[in-house]
Design a protein around this nucleic acid. Structure first.
Length: 150
DNA sequence: TCTGTTATTGCGC
DNA sequence: GCGCAATAACAGA
């Protein structure tokens, strides 16, 4: 199984993606880097033209991965909606603090939509830059509003 | 095995 | 409205 690597632009950031077939191994954010081929779903999703990354999945969803159940619960959050750390924790039968840790260690942001998990009174956090989370949520909200109008 | 760290929350003042 | 303790799980020493 060959692992491929690509970079795509997102605002000021470059998103590096490591994947093979439909399985995404790692998603990381970099300040610099030359754009190269990434799965088309990624670009469509980031530009708000598509509301799903299907059929892409993440290694974080496979059995045996730490936080497997947490990532699955987050994966189920619908496009344009958000859940709090507590709500996710309740679904998984764990502690909200643990959800925060799981999100920080999330090997594949975007695929696991960790940006849809927010703090009760604010956005919560995002590594390496809260702006990425903010932008993603704005794109999703905008698209959902447009869909609602039509 | 122990300690430090963490993308939170809710209570008390 | 702010500060702080409670609290779970991993990484590194």
């Amino acid at each position: 199984m060959e692992i491929r690597s690509g970079i795509c632009r997102f605002g000021l950031w470059r998103i590096r993606i490591l994947w093979s077939e439909n399985l995404v191994h790692k998603v990381s954010f970099e300040r610099f880097g030359e754009e190269s081929y990434v799965p088309p779903q990624i670009k469509l999703f980031l530009s708000g033209k598509k509301d799903t990354l299907s059929p892409l999945t993440s290694v974080a969803l496979t059995d045996g991965h730490p936080y497997n159940n947490i990532y699955r619960a987050v994966f189920e959050i619908p496009y344009g909606e958000t859940k709090t750390y507590s709500e996710v924790a309740e679904i998984c039968g764990t502690h909200h603090r643990t959800v925060g840790i799981a999100m920080k260690r999330n090997p594949t942001p975007l695929i696991i939509p960790c940006h849809r998990v927010v703090s009760k009174n604010s956005l919560g956090g995002f590594t390496p830059d809260i702006m990425i989370k903010k932008s993603l949520l704005e794109i999703e909200k905008k698209k959902r509003n447009l869909a609602g109008l039509s």
